[in-house]
């Protein structure tokens, strides 16, 4: 084994992994290059676009700006972990589909992860909450409108469900 490598244990989408990595490896590189989870995308490499957003211990973070070493012992959820293994989409994914909330789809995984984390954190987010919490996710195709509608739809459904 390369002596400069270190071993980390991380749970990704519920599966435990033990991987040996160079310390300079980012979480994004770990996911894409080591674990083959290419759903998480790289688009800016300077912490500005949010395409690489994943959830670490319930928090949305940008995987390009977190060292893989720093998620040692933590739980990571990526876009591959949102739907059930037998092919059922999450409520949010369904809403994205129904509302045509994506176009080229390159930033969609990041948006899904940000909004999934927000919907976990906030029971009943306002329009302002939603827009504010989605500021970390750049999109060039959609103009954001249908994507915000999809999130609002989930909030609405949740409210109705709790009544």
């Amino acid at each position: 084994m390369d002596s400069s490598k270190k071993t980390i244990n991380v749970k990704v989408n519920g599966e435990p992994y033990e991987v040996s990595i160079k310390p300079k490896m980012t979480l994004l590189q770990l996911l894409r290059n080591e674990l083959g989870l290419t759903g998480t995308k790289q688009a800016c490499m300077d912490n500005s676009c949010g395409a690489c957003t994943v959830i670490v211990n319930k928090m949305a973070v940008k995987a390009c700006s977190v060292l893989a070493m720093q998620v040692n012992g933590k739980e990571v959820t990526t876009v591959e972990g949102l739907a059930s293994k037998d092919g059922k989409l999450s409520i949010l994914q369904e809403a994205f589909l129904e509302h045509s909330a994506f176009q080229c789809g390159f930033c969609s995984p990041g948006k899904l992860m940000s909004s999934t984390a927000m919907l976990e954190e906030l029971e009943n987010p306002t329009e302002e909450d939603i827009r504010r919490d989605m500021e970390g996710n750049l999109c060039r195709c959609t103009g954001y409108v249908q994507y915000l509608e999809a999130i609002k739809e989930v909030v609405r459904q949740r409210k109705e469900g709790s009544k």
Partner: peptide, 12 residues
């Protein structure tokens, strides 16, 4: 703090 970068950056 609401104006510091993005939610993702503020989380980490």
């Amino acid at each position: 703090e609401k104006s510091v970068a993005s939610v993702q950056t503020r989380n980490w």
